[in-house]
């Protein structure tokens, strides 16, 4: 394949999928109640835009707030666990245990405690994104090369000097890589919480739309979620490249 072809291949595929979807629905005569055509979804999006946007902002808001708290907690826990072998061995099984609980199952409990609405969505977004950050940061800090550790120890470096000069910078590529995963997960978390227990947000809007068989609006909701998800992912990819380009340029 020519280099230029190769560069545009992903774009061509994406457009191709939509074109296929459109044609398939048209030619096979698929009902709009089952699977609306992309053009119809786009039309529905613009038609309902004034109604959709407040929900979209709500979802974005709960996601970002939950994500921010998740990052703070995840980073602190990761540093704490990664910088001590004892803490690493002690806390790791518990973390794995917590992470293997489906977070959807926690939402009813959060609703029980905080009532339906914004708070459970923020908390779900937070809880769901903590774990990948903790695992990545602690791994980055805990896997400093033994030779480097010996060099630092022979210089009589203190624990915090070791962490500040070696452990933390070394874990940054892991941290930023986990942010990309974490922001996507946060998004999933807040939409789930909205769907289960909220009167605001895209998740809630889609639930109501589907119960009134407004299928194009359901798909329009899906579309805005996809757009926001991809945008957030892209932003954090750029941040990653800016912050820890040295790790990507290696080799």
């Amino acid at each position: 394949m020519k280099p230029t072809m190769r560069k545009f291949a992903p774009t061509i595929l994406i457009i191709g999928v939509f074109v296929f979807w459109e044609l398939f629905c048209l030619l096979a005569g698929i009902s709009e109640l089952v699977l609306p055509r992309p053009t119809r979804i786009l039309a529905a999006f613009f038609e309902y835009a004034p109604a959709i946007m407040p929900h979209a902002w709500q979802t974005l808001y709960t996601t970002l707030v939950g994500f921010s708290f998740g990052v703070m907690i995840g980073l602190s826990l990761g540093v704490l666990i990664g910088s001590s072998k004892l803490a690493y061995d002690t806390a790791y099984p518990l973390l794995v245990g917590i992470s293997s609980i489906p977070k959807v199952a926690v939402v009813p409990i959060l609703v029980l405690w905080f009532g339906a609405g914004t708070v459970p969505a923020i908390l779900t977004a937070m809880i769901i994104c903590i774990f990948p950050i903790v695992v990545n940061v602690s791994t980055g800090i805990a896997t400093v090369e033994p030779e480097l550790e010996d060099v630092m120890r022979s210089l009589k470096a203190k624990r915090w000097e070791m962490l500040w000069n070696v452990g933390l910078p070394r874990s940054m590529p892991y941290f930023f890589a986990s942010l990309k995963v974490a922001i996507t997960l946060s998004f999933v978390g807040s939409v789930i919480a909205e769907t289960v227990a909220s009167n605001k947000g895209v998740g809630n809007m889609m639930l109501i739309a589907s119960s009134s068989f407004n299928v194009p609006l359901v798909f329009a909701g899906l579309m805005i979620l996809a757009v926001m998800g991809i945008t957030l992912y892209a932003i954090f990819s750029v941040v990653e490249r800016r912050m820890v380009g040295w790790a990507l340029r290696k080799q």
Binding site: D150, V151, V166, R170
Partner: peptide, 10 residues
């Protein structure tokens, strides 16, 4: 100094 130079890549 060890066999692995272990310079900090950042």
């Amino acid at each position: 100094a060890f066999q692995s130079a272990s310079l900090l890549p950042w």
